[in-house]
Design a protein around this nucleic acid. Sequence first.
DNA 1: CGATGTCAAGGAATC
DNA 2: GATTCCTTGACATCG
Length: 300
Amino acid sequence: MRLGFAVKVLGEGGLPSHDTRRWQSAPHLRHSIEAMHAVLGYLERHDIRMYRMTASLAPYATHPDLPAFHAQVDEALYELAGLGAHARALGIRLSTHPGQYVVLNSEHAAVQEAAIRDLELQAALFDALGLGPEAVAVIHVGGGGRDRPAGLDRWVAGWERLSERARARLVVENDDRTYALPDVMELHRRTGVPVVFDVLHHECCDRDGIPVRAALALALRTWPSGVRPKVHYSTPREPGSRAHADEIDPLAFAAFLDAAAGLEFDVMLEAKAKDLALLRLRERLATPPARGDRRGRAAA
DNA sequence: CGATGTCAAGGAATC
DNA sequence: GATTCCTTGACATCG
């Protein structure tokens, strides 16, 4: 099982994840690729084999008012191939997670159009990187919580408008208030899209009371054979909260792994302390707390 | 230099 | 129909 973290590197004084300059400064994918080589070096030094890239690796690449930027992937094909080779050589699984503005099931045609553009770009990036089928772009179902069935229909309609290669890179995640596991399982039945199981979201939004192991097993079976599924794991800031804590609670995580015994998957950790949370969790799992020490402090 | 406002983008809740 | 929050980090600007 691989453990990964999202985007921002805090260790070693912090590393940039991509070219974050404003569009007026002409940011470019090439600069992001340079930043990513440094991130891969960091991951290798710390034996981290899974990483969520920023969804903005190609800055403003899908901005409708900036046609000059559309060609970034084509302009950097050689550099992308080099970056992908670097990641493959290190055995690092890469993914992206386009944010709240990418809404494939939007009621507004222009918004759905923009989502399709973005997902096509993510797929073009993964293909140019030369990454295997484990490199995927994760999205939520989107909006329309008042009428969930209609929202699911719109999602399928959006999915049907994607190219084969974009479909091949797309996976869908259960969210924490609207589209729960049964909803994304329906999308899987209708389109074949694999499901990323988010453990905290399931705890927040589980109308049918599906036990975590059963829910996890359902989601894992949506992945093609030969492609290792992945799940999202985070600790709530307070019990019942939807916000992520700084770190991962090692006891809760160990209990989750216990419940998941025998199942195979990678885990993307979502914690505000990012890579530092991952390193600390790994340390704490390797050094179990003394009996009765509920805080899980390593022996001083 | 430190503090503060702003950023391409959507949706839900509120009025 | 318009406004505010959600949630996030870092650029950009101002004092």
